[in-house]
Structure formats: structure tokens, C-alpha cells
């Protein structure tokens, strides 16, 4: 039956009765080129004024390497934290009855709506030595503001909505029958979660992870206020681009920009391919 179904699908695709393919795809590509591709290509063209050797030595200079390690490393960590707590939050929001759940639900989108500069100022206020949270942490030797830990806090903050928002609808949409069946067969809650629920929400988690990671890597506005910006220690890659611009070094700035662009592009592409595969696998 699944085999037959698959064939039937393929057949119907070949003679799709739904109209508007040319129009919608044409418009999509036109608008995409106008707003995204042509402007982004200017970065590549500008950086191409470098020879390959200069380009390579610019993007692999020690200070740049340190900033990549910091930016990508902390973004990865932040995205992981968001995965764990994002799935938990989505679970609680989708499955439990909770007084004031709507408020919590609405709050999750806050990092998205708050301008990054405000987020940065606020986080620096709250987590610095004299802030509401910082004053409890500092006596224990934990310094958050103006250290790489501050960058982690900022990146976690701005990436928070993504895992929740991708996992929550999938979790709510899951058919209860499977879980019921598993329970009837004697599986305990943990087994049900890890064997039945988790595989079904994994693609959504991965998407959320990628979105949170990609967003964190490019973040500038909020990090600048809380990072301390010490060279080699707490200097993120976007700041290096700004520093290069400040010296009117446009080719240098765009060279680093191309590195960031390709990383975001490949992360997103990998996730999209992975999702496509998992969807095919699931069906």
C-alpha cells in the first residue's frame, strides 16, 4: 500500500492540475533576486577585489580566527541550551493546563519583538555586577556581563523563541493514538517520549536549532552592550566587520562577511536537506 501510494503521488505530480506555478515561482524568484540576491552579491563582488592569497590571509588572521571560535562556539552552545529548554517549554505549553499559560505563551516571542539594542542594554543592566541578577552571581565569582558568558546569555535570549515555536505546533498536532497504543503495550512515559514522540519532533527541533544558531551567529546589537569586546577574548565576528569598516577597509569587511554568509548558507541548506530527508523517511 505505501508503495502504491508513493507511485500514485508521483503520477499526480506529473500532471498537476493546480494553476499558478509559473506565476508564483516567477514572482518568488524575481522578488528574491531584487531584495536578497542582488544586494548580497555586492558583498561578494566587493571582496573579489582581493587576490585569493590576500583574501585567505585576511579571513584567517589570528584575530579573525579567535572571533570565529568565539562566535560559532558560543552560538552553538546557546542553540543547544535553547533546544533543551525550548523542547521543555513547548512540552509544557502544548500539554499541560497551567494558570496564566497564555501570558507565558505570549512572553516567548518577546526576544523577537524587543529591539536588539534594548535587549542588550537591558541584559547588561540586569546581569552586570550591580544588576538584579548579577548581584547574586558576582559574590560566587560568576561574572556574566562583559565576559564571553554575557555573549552566551545574549545569544540564548535572542534565540529562545525559535525552538519553542517550531516544536510547539508539531507537538500539539501529534496523533494521540500512537502514544495510547504505546502505553497499552506497556511502555513507560520516558520510553514513549524517547521512542514515539521524540522521533516525530526531531525535524522540528533541528529546524529550531538551526534557526537559533543562525540568528545568534549574526547578532550584533545586543551583544555589543554586554560582551566587553576585548580583542581575542570577547570580540564577535560582526564587530570585526564594523572595525574594518571603521578603517574604510571595505574589501576586508566584505571578505569576513562572505565567510559569515557562507556559514549561514550551508547551515541552513544542510538543515533543509535533512528535513526533506526525514519527511520522506517519515512518509
Amino acid at each position: 500500500m505505501p508503495l502504491l501510494g508513493g507511485n500514485a503521488m508521483k503520477h499526480s505530480r506529473r500532471q498537476n492540475v493546480i494553476p499558478g506555478f509559473g506565476l508564483s515561482l516567477g514572482y518568488t524568484i524575481f522578488y528574491l533576486s531584487l531584495i536578497v540576491l542582488i544586494p548580497l552579491s555586492s558583498v561578494v563582488v566587493k571582496s573579489a577585489s582581493f587576490s585569493w592569497g590576500t583574501y585567505w590571509s585576511t579571513v584567517t588572521a589570528p584575530r579573525e580566527m579567535a572571533s570565529y571560535r568565539l562566535t560559532f562556539g558560543v552560538a552553538l552552545l546557546a542553540a543547544t541550551i535553547n533546544c533543551v529548554f525550548g523542547v521543555l517549554t513547548a512540552w509544557v505549553l502544548a500539554r499541560y493546563r497551567l494558570p496564566g499559560k497564555r501570558i507565558v505563551d505570549a512572553l516567548v516571542d518577546l526576544p523577537f519583538a524587543l529591539p536588539t539594542a534594548v535587549a542588550g542594554i537591558t541584559l547588561a543592566t540586569v546581569y552586570s555586577g550591580n544588576g538584579w541578577i548579577g548581584r547574586w552571581l558576582e559574590p560566587h565569582g560568576i561574572k556574566v556581563a562583559y565576559t564571553p558568558l554575557g555573549i552566551l546569555v545574549a545569544m540564548t535570549f535572542i534565540g529562545l523563541p525559535f525552538v519553542v515555536r517550531t516544536v510547539q505546533p508539531v507537538l500539539a498536532d501529534l496523533e494521540g493514538e500512537l502514544e495510547e497504543a504505546a502505553a497499552c503495550l506497556g511502555a513507560n512515559r520516558w520510553q514513549i517520549f524517547s521512542r514515539v514522540v521524540f522521533p516525530q519532533i526531531l525535524p522540528a527541533i533541528l529546524t529550531g536549532f538551526a534557526l537559533a544558531f543562525a540568528r545568534a551567529v549574526g547578532e550584533y546589537g545586543s551583544i555589543i552592550f554586554i560582551a566587553g569586546n576585548m580583542p581575542m577574548v570577547s570580540e564577535v565576528t560582526p564587530l570585526l566587520i564594523i572595525t574594518k569598516l571603521e578603517q574604510y577597509d571595505y574589501p576586508g569587511a566584505t571578505a569576513i562577511a562572505t565567510v559569515m554568509l557562507s556559514v549561514s548558507f550551508f547551515v541552513l541548506l544542510a538543515i533543509n536537506l535533512l528535513q526533506k530527508r526525514s519527511r520522506r523517511f517519515a512518509s
Partner: peptide
């Protein structure tokens, strides 16, 4: 195509401003 549509989301704001200056 989907990846290209996603791209602006993960482009650093620093770069997304810069591209229009370059243009």
C-alpha cells in the same frame, strides 16, 4: 530556493545594512 529564502534571517544585521550601502 528555500535556503535562499531563509538566508536574510541569518545574515548579520551589520551585513544587511552594508549591502545597501555598497549598492
Amino acid at each position: 530556493l528555500v535556503t535562499l529564502i531563509d538566508l536574510p534571517f541569518s545574515v548579520s544585521p551589520v551585513i544587511s545594512g552594508l549591502i545597501y550601502v555598497l549598492l
